[in-house]
Simulated scan of single mutants.
Amino acid sequence: MQGLRAQWPAALGGLIICVGATFFEVSHAAGAHLAVQVPAEVGRVGAGVPASPETIGSPAPVDPRWEVVRKLLRSGQYPAAESVARAMVKDRPSDVRAGFYLGLALHKGKRHGEALAYLERATAAPADSFPEAPHAVHYLGWCRYYLGDLAGARVAFTTHANAFPTYDDTQFALGLIAYEEDRLVESEAYFRRALELLGQQQGAARERAKNLARLGDVLLRQDRLPEAEQCYRRAVELFEQHGEAWSKLARVLDRLGRPEDAANARARQAAIKARTETEKPSP
């Protein structure tokens, strides 16, 4: 089961952060997006001092670093995002939103242990305390998952699913946890629900492939081989570079007594692995 967590980086995907106007969803085309709009803060007028027309109701200047850290996260520059967020936390240690972004940058940089406290604090904040607050629990769930705390992750994702039942990545996460806890009927239902939600979105082929591959894992464990084959084939049709799905497809084909087809699937998986190794940057 540890291998499963290693194979699916927060998704980690499966995944890609879209902060900015569609921050919540991080790598996914979600059904419940969060618009990151900084609420206008009314400038405080000194007691007894007549306010000029320019001062009354004028918003306080927005720290430009919010947009900087969002852009860095969106482009996968996690160390740089961490530096900006850490500077913001230093300047405003009581700002839960700044801590949330630092936790998110650490989490996306796979430093889950360091991210945990920041994300827990953000999750404990009132839902209206900062724009992303209602979704902090989703990232806390992934953080706990990668730290091996399945029970804690399940609580976090269930909380988020109750509030945002149309968010596909939370359904996917609950499916992974159910699979690892051998609750296969529930796992299948979660993956199918995620696929149903993704079917309503454009440009979500890779996300659908990810869910189909995991649904195939559930079916394979139950010896539902023809159904598993169908899932893996659909996964690689949607995302041809899905090496793990090719490998699992080969395993199913072996068990179905089709060694030539299995060999072809393994050849595809080997070619993907070789290409990935070639494309790795030099140390």
Rank of each mutant, 00 (worst) to 15 (best):
G76P: 02
L102W: 04
S83P: 06
R111V: 01
Y78I: 06
T55G: 03
Y101M: 13
A115K: 14
V45N: 09
V84N: 10
E82T: 12
S75I: 14
A51P: 10
V89F: 06
S83K: 07
K108Q: 08
V96H: 01
V84W: 06
A29Y: 07
P53T: 07
G113Q: 15
E41H: 02
L116N: 08
Y101A: 09
V68F: 07
R86I: 08
A40G: 01
R86Q: 12
G48F: 05
H33S: 14
H33A: 13
Y101D: 10
A60F: 09
R65H: 04
D63E: 13
A35Q: 05
E82H: 10
A117D: 15
S83E: 15
G76R: 02
R74L: 11
G57N: 05
V69K: 00
H28Q: 01
K71C: 12
S75R: 03
R86H: 09
D91K: 02
R92A: 13
Q37C: 03
K71S: 15
E114S: 15
L116F: 15
K108T: 01
Y78F: 13
S83W: 03
V42E: 07
S58Y: 00
S52N: 05
Y101F: 14
G99T: 08
P61W: 08
R74S: 14
E114M: 12
S94G: 14
A98F: 10
Y78A: 02
A47L: 05
V36I: 05
L119V: 14
K108N: 05
V62C: 04
Y101E: 10
P61E: 13
A85R: 01
G99V: 03
A60M: 09
V69P: 00
V96A: 06
A30P: 03
H28C: 02
H28F: 07
G48D: 10
G48S: 06
R97D: 10
A80D: 15
A81S: 06
G76I: 04
T55K: 04
V62S: 04
R86N: 09
A30I: 09
H107Y: 11
R92E: 12
P79W: 14
L106F: 02
A40S: 01
D95W: 04
E67F: 11
V68Q: 14
W66I: 00
K90I: 09
R65E: 04
P79Y: 14
A98P: 12
A117C: 12
V62R: 11
V49F: 09
V96L: 06
K110P: 02
L102F: 10
H33V: 14
A117M: 14
G103V: 11
G103P: 10
H33C: 13
A30D: 03
P61Y: 09
K90Y: 03
S52I: 00
Y78R: 00
G76S: 08
D95C: 06
E41R: 01
K90N: 08
Y78T: 07
A81R: 00
L102E: 10
